[in-house]
Design a protein around this nucleic acid. Structure first.
Lengths: 196, 196
DNA sequence: TATAAAAACGATCATACGTTCGTATCCTGG
DNA sequence: CCAGGATACGAACGTATGATCGTTTTTATA
């Protein structure tokens, strides 16, 4: 027995990534073995290496992919909006929606940073910093226009991001709270905290 | 060679816990080996078992200890305060201070929950729930007295906790922001978000 | 349709892991 | 001051890990 009928590199790699997101999200990167991952995609452990470089590479690939998508998406979501208040509202709605839809990626992207080797981590941290800058910019421009009253912009940005990102650990899309309600609650919390 | 001169069970166990907090905080529970831990306290790997039951037991011990202390401390911090607004301020100040002083424990206590086996995890989750209830109670009583206007108490409590806990990932006690400023900024953010 | 590349298998490598054990030495309570 | 428990060593256990290899079969290109 060797190459399986109907096998295709693209599909297998996609399956590996998907299974990787699932497993790492559930158990953590270090706790997931390549044997478990291989079993999840019905492959022998060694065969994974037809598609990934190393285990570390897979992790970086997953996180990097997520960060790039996140940045593209936030820029798309803010595109064309000029008013800082409207921008902040759009940012909140985008951030929550994205974090609901990509719980796994977001969670891995923050909790597994330390499993990245220093070189890879550096790249991801830089991308994350860029994302944080988007919020800082909004707060800054809102403060400059005297729409917001903010004591310390970076600290406030961190606080807001932490609050919005927190939903990843508890929000259940099938639970009591629907998405719109979730966004409304958080929008109100943030805006009141920030408005003049 | 065998038992080392000057060795004492109490001191060794304390050193193991301390090193455990450090290592797990830095690298994550799964990534820390008992050999690394033993080396950190200048012991042979097998000797750890004079002081701990298993690796899993050590983790539970660290987290459980932290949660019990957290609960005792929050109750002490709120003791005697009646006004919900004052309670909320006290809660914020306490939570931030505690989380600054015990970054490692707090971080491990949330990020390594999944490394606990189900039985242990259940106990910790129950303790955490109790802590969350403290904040929910404050919000509830403040809302009942028409001091606060809150759309959804559990969601708001989660949001506030996430925001306050977020500092663990970035706050540096030796950095630009001193503790009082940090507390002021967060107090203002939360209160504005919650007040009527 | 011939042929190279792609993708899988199954076996295997060296290493690292958590844990146990027998033994030696030290500390402490009676 | 001595007996016995406490504490450490060092070697070892079985298992799991990430990764490599040669081989075989399928797919896709030209």
């Amino acid at each position: 027995m060797s190459r399986t009928a109907g096998s295709s590199g693209k599909k297998t790699l996609a399956a590996i990534r998907e299974a990787g997101l699932d497993l790492i999200h559930e158990r953590g990167f270090e706790a997931v073995s390549l044997r478990q991952l291989a079993a999840r995609v019905s492959l022998q452990p060694g065969s994974l290496y037809n598609h990934i470089e190393t285990k570390q590479d897979l992790l970086f690939d997953l996180i990097h992919n997520h960060m790039v998508t996140l940045l593209q998406s936030v820029d798309a979501a803010l595109d064309g909006i000029e008013d800082p208040l409207a921008q902040l509202e759009a940012f909140i709605a985008f951030h929550l929606t994205y974090h609901i839809e990509r719980k796994r990626e977001v969670f891995i992207g923050s909790s597994e940073l330390r499993s990245l080797d220093p070189k890879n981590r550096k790249k991801i941290v830089a991308l994350r910093r860029t994302y944080e800058e988007r919020l800082c910019d909004i707060l800054e421009r809102g403060a400059a226009k005297r729409l917001f009253k903010i004591d310390d912009i970076p600290v406030s940005a961190y606080a807001i991001l932490a609050m919005l990102t927190g939903i990843c650990t508890w929000y259940d899309a099938k639970g009591r709270i629907d998405r719109k309600t979730l966004i409304d609650i958080h929008t109100r919390l943030v805006l009141q905290g920030v408005l003049k």
